[in-house]
Design a protein around this nucleic acid. Structure first.
Lengths: 108, 108
DNA sequence: ACATTCGTTCGCATTATTGCGAACATTCAG
DNA sequence: CTGAATGTTCGCAATAATGCGAACGAATGT
């Protein structure tokens, strides 16, 4: 049975571990939220346009299962190419901006 | 030798063809411009941060050749995952918005 | 001349996204 | 009940992005 690094009786270890875990967790959360927001935007645009997934898929030039994936909250694989195709299908375009890390303000 | 669809003595064919070609050309131009804008944003952020491609690559967790690709004007393969990694490396985050097709206004 | 750093390009393996059909449960209309 | 439409998930082939090292020309400083 190998040593277990003292199981954690050291205060610094605890702090370091917690700090690291929160940093990592925050990064993952932020990315998850950002991806989910993209997904929800697609969903919102589609429903507001009165389109079904299959209808949008046809406009985009793909199938319903792909649209369903794009709208999934846990999907992180969005590509700009696909986003632009989806946007174009609904007379929209994509705007990408690099903004300060924790800027919660939206320019409207 | 198969028929050649009258080679084009028909006015409507000419108009349709021209319309289609301009539509397609416009779409490609718009996509090219959008991609180039992303590339230039990365370049601008990097240089303003005083980083070399290799330095940024290390921060992002990749190599200089990848950064070089991302900054190329003719590269259309950007993924949100990579953009977020680049952004995070420079204390930024990515904001994606679907805006009306020909809206030339920027909200800031 | 030499070494260093820079941006750039190439090829190739690895990984991820897309394409697509099939199937399922649910809902709604006839 | 029957039929049609919707959203969803699954698997797999095809395509595309990434990872990475190597090499090159150019610019810089020693």
């Amino acid at each position: 049975m190998p040593r277990r690094k003292k199981t954690t009786t050291n205060a610094i270890d605890i702090i370091d571990r917690r700090f690291f875990s929160t940093k990592k967790a925050q990064a993952e959360l932020e990315e998850a939220r950002a991806s989910a927001q993209v997904a929800r935007q697609i969903y919102a645009l589609r429903t507001e346009a009165g389109l079904s997934q299959r209808q949008l898929a046809k406009l985009v030039g793909t199938t319903a299962s792909v649209i369903c994936r794009l709208e999934g909250d846990d999907y992180r694989g969005h590509s700009l190419a696909m986003l632009r195709r989806v946007a174009a299908a609904m007379d929209k375009r994509i705007e990408i901006r690099f903004v300060p890390a924790r800027g919660k303000l939206k320019t409207a």
